[in-house]
Amino acid sequence: MALLSVREETMRFGGLFANQSISFDVEEGELLAVIGPNGAGKTTLFNVISGFFPPTSGSIQFDGKDITGAPSHQVASAGLVRTYQLVQLFKHLTVAENVEIGSHRVTRGGVFSALFRPEWMRKQEKNVCEGARELLRFVGLEHQADLQADKLPYGRQRLLEVARALAAKPRLLLLDEPAAGLNTQETEALADVITRIQRGGTTVILIEHDMSLVMKIAQRIVVLDFGKKIAEGTPDEIKAHPDVIAAYLGGTETVDA
């Protein structure tokens, strides 16, 4: 059974169909890319899947459960974690603490355990702290652990955001244009991180404009245009797909990878 299935999902803003009858499945362990010209409805799709607003119609199933219209923190708790197109860091905190917060979903304890620090709590805190260091190593930020997050260069902020999402041990990770604004080197590093995430067993859906990146790492691609799904298939199939070529030739981008 698919880890995520989107069925006939439609999202309307007034008269505008940002998403229209979109259906697709994502299998466990897969790396799926969602591409499409600006304003195609990719971010909207993420917003609906992650519960930031309920779809106008249609349904979202995650891990066999219907999560349509569930509040976003509940969707996240279920293991579906997303990042944003515009970096959303906890700027006033340190890099390490950003990642530690990421582990919220996989830890427990509230006011009382914080006050009385039982054995399990202390052990958990230690794990959280060490886990954060490990993830920072994973994305190559271990030397900036104690830096305030907004002092990081932009490219590294994106990596931090990915590390923070990973701290939540997601079953499905949604990345919204993680390479936007990165230079070639930084994009390489990011591609490497994403590939390793997927090899580690985490399912990933990636929105990306950088075609070379998509063609290199994605196993399957869903193409949106004007809110509709116009194609779905392997990178090779997509490259040859006439509708995709038309959509991109009509737009400003090209499929040249």
Binding site: S50, F52, S72, H73, Q74, A76, S77, V81, R82, T83, Y84, Q88, L89, F90, K91, H92, L93, E97, E100, I101, G102, H104, R105, R164, A165, A168
Partner: peptide, 18 residues
């Protein structure tokens, strides 16, 4: 930390399950 995440960015906090 959950409180601090709300101060930092409510949408990011939500996306992490807070």
């Amino acid at each position: 930390r959950a409180l601090a995440s709300i101060a930092g960015s409510e949408s990011a906090a939500l996306a992490l399950g807070v």
